[in-house]
Design a binder for these strands. Structure first.
Lengths: 235, 235
DNA sequence: CGCCGTATTGAGCGCTCTCAAGCTAGGTGG
DNA sequence: CCACCTAGCTTGAGAGCGCTCAATACGGCG
């Protein structure tokens, strides 16, 4: 399948803010100390591990999460190709979440001290870094939306914005499980499933197991902003 | 009242990461372009305003928010004395939220370009900045907790951690309205009110209108992590 | 082909919302 | 100084959305 191959080969180096500093992670890179290949479910780091590196995702996807006393997982964030994770650990000097790959994933390891040192000599790097961080603050602002419909449609739209080089920009690679989405949005996995089914029934999208094609972008945006999603329930 | 005076006079310059660069916002400061006094409800910036400054809160508190199509407000974040806001605007070059003071507030204006330039000559500033940003990523990770009890107790505990120089560290200045707290946590204002009342009845805290004294920190932490808050309902 | 994790779908319950009615506190003017 | 006035808070009753539990279907992988 052409799609599958494309997904696997898709590398986001040209979207990565470090691209001009890493020389494609060559041994002599001043910034990147190496690459790491992770299979699905493999751990990148664990809660309370000592902080030393940031990670730039070259391909694949990673989730950060907590497990509560009852074994219930709560997702803190998803990270897609081209994005950077690990910032949360800076002020604590350890990682406050665990991180595992949710697909086969390649990450570039960025020693924090090296990054800091490089910034003083390269002001443009600093600008890129702050811009990237800035973007992160806009993620997931919809997780407290009053209805499940709003949360899920906003989530799908955000994913489609973040997914780099989508050949058709409306085709989504839903690499995380329904349970993960639910945990991220504060909803049950069954609720995610039900809403997706209903959205499909109403021609807003098409589900192909792990892939989703968004048909009515406009309507979804309308729902995300609560265009009478509560009252009408026509979707 | 001693408490009231303390609250008003409380300035967080010694907690501010910029403190050694601002010379108390003297005219010749290399970083801070000036101070701004805001009365309660006064606007600091509005959605879509062009980005130019970050703001460090010297005293008081600010909320950032969105108003949806139906006029419903949704709070993005609260910022307390000693904290910095405006980061979200960097990558868009405009502010993605509106910001208004929720008490009488003093902020220091930090021109972003000046900050960027200063960083290249002062690596320690960079380190402080990234540490401060790092901390921000941990805020509000509880807003998708399954029960309202969990969300609210986690919120109160976070506030008590963030509130600088609390003379008695368990006495909270709840400067935002119940409605604001609700909008932040994805709950109705009535729910906030009900839970606070119940917590008070069960000796977890004492409500004095806008001030709250946390009595049983341990129990609240237990609830925040869902120590049988669902099943028991003994609180 | 058969297995197991994941997803879907259904039924019933419960938490939280909505709507509505008092209540409280702080500010204003006489 | 006090009565009023208004915004915010509290409390109650009923409805509904999303959760839980459970059964079934799907799909990837051996």
């Amino acid at each position: 399948m052409a799609i599958k191959e494309l997904t696997q080969e898709k590398s986001s180096c040209h979207h990565c803010i470090f691209t001009s500093f890493c020389q494609r992670a060559a041994p002599a890179s001043p910034l990147v100390s190496g690459r790491q290949l992770l299979k699905r479910r493999e751990s990148l780091y664990s809660y309370r591990d000592a902080f030393s590196h940031l990670y730039a995702i070259k391909s694949g996807a990673v989730k950060t999460f907590h497990v509560d006393l009852e074994g219930q997982e709560s997702i803190h964030q998803f990270y897609l190709a081209g994005e950077i994770l690990g910032f949360e650990a800076i002020y604590l000097n350890h990682y406050p979440f665990s991180a595992i790959a949710i697909t086969n994933t390649t990450v570039c390891r960025i020693p924090y001290e090296r990054l800091i040192n490089l910034i003083s000599s390269r002001p443009d790097l600093n600008r890129h870094l702050l811009t990237s961080i800035s973007q992160r603050f806009s993620f997931g602002q919809y997780v407290t939306a009053p209805t499940a419909d709003q949360r899920l449609s906003a989530f799908l739209l955000e994913l489609s914005r973040r997914q780099p080089d989508c050949n058709t920009p409306i085709e989504l690679d839903l690499c995380m499980s329904r349970q993960d989405i639910g945990n991220y949005l504060g909803l049950a996995a069954e609720t995610i499933s039900r809403i997706l089914s209903r959205f499909q029934k109403n021609r807003l999208l098409v589900i192909k197991s792990k892939k989703i094609k968004l048909l009515d972008h406009t309507q979804l945006q309308w729902i995300a902003q609560d265009g009478l999603a509560k009252s009408g329930s026509i979707y």
